[in-house]
Amino acid sequence: MLDIIINPFITLLLVLYGLLGRNVFLAIVGFTIIVRFALLPLTIKQQRSFKRMQELQPKQRMLQEKYKNDRERLTQEQMALYREHGVNPFAGCLPLLIQLPIFLSLWRAILATLASTPDQLLELQDRILIGGLDHLVPLKNTFLWMNLALPDQFYILPILVVITTYLQQKLIMPVTPTTSSSGNDAADQAARMSKQMTTFMPLLFGFFALTYSSGLSIYFITSNIVGIIQYAMMGKADVRRLIGKEAPKKEEKAVSAIVTGEVEAGDVIEAPTKTPAKPAAPVRQPRMAKEPVEAGSVVSATGRPLKPGITERKLSGSSAAASSGTTTKSAGKTSKTPPSRNRPKK
């Protein structure tokens, strides 16, 4: 079934091999770069979708808390939330689903052209779509100390695979701090999952690099590096994530203010401040609450729960209580929060 993708890939790889002086290393690197950049629109779409989902996380958590005893209602509310923000919760997975067969084919194409076993070589003739490339088969499999058809005996490539995969995971995966000491909170689940992925994926790909052809390791390493560069070009790669820190975001601060009741919809929110992050501000109870408000609910300064989408400001960040330092105006009065040097002009 994948042949429809594998065969053009094999042909492309052979063309590159011929053009790049029959250097299999350059051919694999060039091939990986071309495919990764061809998939860039999908990568961008996926990243955007993840970001939007992440932005909705605070609201989601609040809904989960609010309707924790009514699953049906929770589902309805979540779907309404998604609809309101034009988010498809599975949209982030779709590009990945599309990319998966492509990367599988990429893998298979490299294995096929290296033809480390008679079986692989025997199949190759029918896979080459352009005439005149047969004289290039099989690819010369030696480069530096390596036989690219075999695993790297020095373990250098598998180690590089693990490192680059880890770096890529770490740089692009948003830090999702845990919020609950009980450990069963949804955010905790997501955080654990993120952590598992950044641990599991490098090890998994390292295992593949140890087991299979070195050519594949070169593909992994190149792909990871290109991935990091792509994310960096999109402004998504954050070096601070390597040490488990997320860059402070203005949106978080705005959300913090809303959630803590320091600001109401329609109030002016400060432009991003250059002041460093400060310790968490105490959570203020909403004023004039007419009915009991559940912990973590989004409320206005008047104590009314905020409607979804009440502000165009983004609701990113994991915990309202974790953000602080925002200077706001509330109900026409200057709040007692620390003054800001960057008050927007009216």
Partner: peptide, 27 residues
């Protein structure tokens, strides 16, 4: 718990599932 089950259906869960599935397919 409800929140736990809901969390399992987050996009991250699907991403992880797809990656593992892909890894199995690769093998």
């Amino acid at each position: 718990m409800n929140t736990s089950r809901t969390a399992r259906l987050t996009p991250r869960f699907w991403v992880l599932t797809i990656l593992i599935l892909g890894a199995v397919l690769l093998t």
